[in-house]
């Protein structure tokens, strides 16, 4: 758009876009605001926007009553663990696909992506059964493995696209210089692909953090992450809006921040490169 636009036009655009943007953002904003109210203020009619007694009490109560930190810790372990585990498995696979392509590479990649589309509910009971058999039900390791598996195709896919941008000659140079395969990947490929790997990591932490089928169905108490913790608020007793808001704010804040950094990767990762 090399064209000059009238200030009037720009003003109208700005007002319209901000109005819609704020409208879409409003539920989140309202949740954050409510988390600083007392329970009575939270349900006040008319609703209170900014002029109430700001309090941090809800955050303390949520932590105290429901041991928020434990759920948070589970979320961190599961989301972080599954992503890192996925990267460890995906980096070599993506290296193979990007730098030693064969006739079947594309088919394998497509097949991997297609496993992502398997409806979870179709395999719910077998997984449930296997988890009981293997003693993995309600364990962090079990959930970490499942989330790693459901996100592995996206991790492989994203790394593959980033690796393909790295010239193969550089890896060959390393090979000539005496680097073993491990050294080639560790000292040359990985450092060069750091931005891509970081983006992949980010997007997958987000996806794992928000995953709400397996986390709800494969955990009870011990390994339950924040998704399950929040779901436990669905049958509450007494006044709880402010506390719900505090808990929600804590559950979404870290991911909201990470998410803002990863908008571009989102497009690349979730459309499998079909939209550029």
């Amino acid at each position: 758009m090399a064209r000059a636009v009238t200030t009037r036009r720009k003003t109208i655009n700005t007002v319209a876009a901000w109005a819609i943007g704020l409208l879409i953002f409003f539920p989140i904003l309202w949740t954050i605001l409510t988390s600083f109210k007392t329970e009575a203020q939270a349900i006040n009619d008319p609703p209170l926007f900014l002029f109430f007694d700001w309090t941090l009490e809800n955050y303390a109560v949520v932590q105290e009553r429901s041991d928020y930190m434990r759920f948070l810790w589970n979320s961190v372990i599961i989301a972080g663990g599954s992503t890192i585990l996925g990267l460890i498995i995906a980096v070599p696979a993506a290296w193979s696909m990007a730098f030693v392509p064969s006739k079947r590479t594309k088919d394998i990649l497509m097949w991997m992506l297609s496993t992502k589309m398997l409806p979870a509910v179709g395999v719910l009971y077998p997984i449930y059964l296997l988890f009981i058999e293997l003693g993995l039900l309600d364990t962090r390791i079990g959930l970490t493995i499942v989330l790693m598996l459901i996100n592995l195709p996206i991790i492989v896919w994203m790394l593959y696209t980033y690796f393909k941008e790295i010239p193969g000659e550089i890896l060959e140079a390393a090979r000539m210089d005496g680097a073993t395969l491990k050294e080639e990947i560790l000292y040359i490929l990985t450092p060069m692909a750091i931005p891509g790997i970081a983006s992949t990591l980010l997007l997958n932490v987000i996806l794992a953090w928000n995953e709400a089928f397996w986390t709800l169905n494969l955990t009870a108490a011990k390994a339950a992450p924040l998704t399950a913790f929040i779901a436990s608020y669905s049958s509450p007793e007494g006044l709880f809006y402010a506390k719900l808001s505090a808990a929600s704010t804590m559950a979404i804040a870290p991911i909201l921040i990470l998410g803002w950094f990863s908008q571009k990767q989102l497009v690349r990762g979730l459309t499998f490169g079909a939209v550029k």
Binding site: P167, E169, I170, A173, R175, M176
Partner: peptide, 19 residues
Amino acid sequence: PPAKRGLAMVFQSYALYPH
């Protein structure tokens, strides 16, 4: 394997390690 042949190569693109 390449590394064991005792040869050194200079590539057209130089293939320097950018990092």
